[in-house]
Design a protein around this nucleic acid. Structure first.
Lengths: 152, 152
DNA sequence: TAAAACTAGATCGTATACAATTTAATTTTA
DNA sequence: TAAAATTAAATTGTATACGATCTAGTTTTA
């Protein structure tokens, strides 16, 4: 009946919590820099996608970011209000909304060029380890996402 | 001027995004099980802490979970309303609020015993890899947190 | 081809996260 | 020891996340 009997439930034994906590802590490292640009972290990663490939439907953004329209619609409206993107219905398929960078949105890219490097510095992690970790996490995310897709 | 010039900004090269996405996907694996118990993921990890060591001030809970009172206070009120915990001011230091499991809160523990194992199954990851990953992430979190602490 | 099924976004409701401020209690210090 | 500084929670405001539902547009199919 002792609480110490099941280490499976110890907080520090949970991968899920290690992920949950580290994701939030790493995000916090971006905040001071993003604050200056008036961006939130989620807005920032959304822009990363668009800088890589512009003119994407909300659907595609959602697939890349693992976010749904409930999160993206209000976020994209804010990016639009800030002048970074435009949102237009796709004339080919009026159900779809195409998100495009404005000039201003394109220009913003230069201001964050150095950001990832600045953050890496604060992690005290060798680049190879960071890459390995990143790749493992990507595998994990894809595996889970595939699992979820085949379920009803 | 080509957008492909700076791979530092590619979404898939970001550790931060790998963390952000995987944390959310893993959390989603817990949802169906936790839904049955009427718990959210954050409530669940809060209970993990209390099952390990009962009678903790909000402050300590926050340190273990990397959450502040702005998140914990409403969450703990919900756990209290659900009958899982009690919240009482510490008579020794009235600033502090001690969180205690109720009988019901203790009993809930048995219902989640098998949960971590069930989730691991869906990750297709060998246990050693999971442990290594978890330990790396814990190091990362602690490093960042220490960094943040010495800043003004 | 008209109804049924499906799809993409938008909307709504709930629950975090977290910075900033406030309040009350405790410690420090001049 | 009384004022100043510190501390722990609570509160407030903003921005996600995400399930569920709704709406409008597109495809399928009987």
């Amino acid at each position: 009946m002792d609480t110490n009997k099941n280490p499976m439930l110890f907080l520090d034994n949970q991968l899920c919590f290690a992920l949950y906590a580290s994701a939030r802590e790493v995000t916090k490292l971006y905040r001071p820099f993003l604050d200056e640009l008036g961006l939130t972290y989620t807005q920032y990663v959304t822009l990363l996608v668009l800088w890589e490939k512009d003119e994407l439907p909300v659907k595609s953004l959602g697939e890349k970011l693992y976010l749904d329209s409930g999160t993206l619609t209000p976020l994209l409206k804010k990016l639009e209000a800030a002048g970074h993107v435009r949102r237009d219905r796709d004339p080919q398929d009026e159900r779809s909304v195409i998100v495009r960078l404005t000039e201003q949105g394109h220009a913003l890219r230069e201001k964050v060029e150095g950001l990832p490097a600045k953050v890496f510095c604060q992690t005290d992690m060798p680049p190879e380890e960071i890459e390995k970790l990143r790749d493992q996490l990507q595998d994990l995310t894809r595996t889970i996402n595939k699992y979820a897709a085949c379920k009803p």
